[in-house]
Computed example of a mutant assay.
Amino acid sequence: MGTRTVLLSGARWLALLVPLLDLALVVSGVLSLRAGIVLALVLEAVLAVVLVVEAAASRVAYRRARRSGATRRAAVVSGLAAVWPPVVLRLARAEAGVLRALWWAARRRRAVGPADVALPYAGRFGVVLGAVGALGVLETAVVHVLLPWETARWVLLAVSVYALLWVLGTGASLFQHPHLLRGDELVLRSGHLHAIAVPLTGLVGVRRSVGSEHARTVLRDGDRLVVSVMGDTNVEVRLDPPVPVPGQAAPVARVAFWVDDPRAAVRLLRDRAVSTAG
């Protein structure tokens, strides 16, 4: 990593963290209001320089992505990834995904194309989401009524409503983004957070195979790729020869995942293996 990249990365974090530190020092009384305002003005000038440099870098990355054939949306993401800290970019993607999920829920929309075959995996979340939603509404109402301090009451109300919407949006995205059989690919998803396209050109076998206690939703176990739900999987496919999968350093020979109806998934994938062999 070059010196320029390190300096620019450090400037990004300073532009985000130093204003918050300035505000905290003023609120705690370490700095006077006047000194805080002066410091804030200096920081605004520094931030303006950082923004100009980052805007130029983002524009270069955007144009490069467009020239390579990326869609406008993908190019925008490439431009942001070139200038935003990775953690901030992941948080922004998560927030955008939640907002989109809430909008899609109001419109009853799913990310399933006309020729796609959906393989739902979120059935076990239905009862949990219902219970969390009901308890969240009840807790928010009780806290708002019983808390005696008005300012704290409204702050907690805003935080509670935001948290409830975030949970419901994240849960809704699990139903809106099922696994897909799409052409010669098996697209394995985890809500709006993960979408992994596994080529089925080398599909030679599929079976029901129950696994549990996977530490992460997406993980690599030797030559096997695991996409679990609550740590569980119930279907495994075999690929021979192993196939390259985007985001994986080495080809994948086996893929384990969870679906609500494993029998139907196994049947569909076996039919796909037969048609591919033929």
Rank of each mutant, 00 (worst) to 15 (best):
V245Y: 07
L20F: 11
L20V: 14
A101N: 06
G123Q: 08
A75R: 06
R270N: 14
R109G: 03
V198I: 05
H194C: 06
G113S: 08
L91V: 10
A256S: 15
L33E: 08
R208W: 01
R267V: 12
R72T: 14
G133C: 04
V53L: 14
D260K: 00
P148V: 08
A131T: 13
L165N: 00
L219R: 10
W104T: 02
V237G: 05
V27R: 10
A56L: 15
T151R: 08
Y162H: 12
E54I: 02
G171T: 07
L89R: 11
R189P: 01
S190R: 10
S9F: 14
R110Q: 12
S68D: 11
A163D: 05
V274C: 01
D261C: 06
L129M: 15
R12P: 00
A172K: 00
L119W: 02
V252N: 00
S9A: 14
A141K: 01
R100S: 13
D261W: 08
W149G: 07
T201Y: 00
R59P: 00
S228N: 02
G10H: 06
D271L: 15
W103C: 04
S9I: 03
E44W: 15
R182K: 07
A172C: 03
A115M: 04
R254C: 04
L174H: 14
G211K: 05
A106Q: 07
L25K: 03
S212C: 10
M230V: 06
A249V: 07
P86W: 09
G113C: 10
P246M: 00
Q176Y: 04
T233M: 08
S9P: 01
A249T: 08
G169I: 07
L147A: 12
D232H: 15
T5W: 11
V206H: 05
E185Y: 13
V155L: 15
L129F: 10
A163G: 08
G202S: 11
R109F: 05
D260H: 05
L268M: 13
L180W: 01
R108W: 15
R72I: 06
R67W: 00
A61V: 04
T217N: 07
G126P: 02
V145N: 00
A65K: 02
G247I: 02
Q176V: 02
P120H: 06
V42G: 13
G130L: 09
G211E: 09
V210P: 11
R207V: 06
E54S: 14
L43T: 07
S275H: 14
L21A: 15
E213H: 15
L7D: 03
P86F: 09
V112P: 03
N234V: 04
G278A: 15
V142D: 02
H192E: 09
P120D: 03
L47H: 12
Y62N: 03
L99V: 12
G183I: 01
A253D: 01
G79F: 09
R124P: 03
A75H: 09
L80F: 08
P246L: 00
D223H: 10
G211A: 07
P246Q: 01
D271V: 10
T276E: 12
R93A: 15
A57N: 07
M230H: 13
G211F: 05
R63L: 11
W149D: 13
S160W: 01
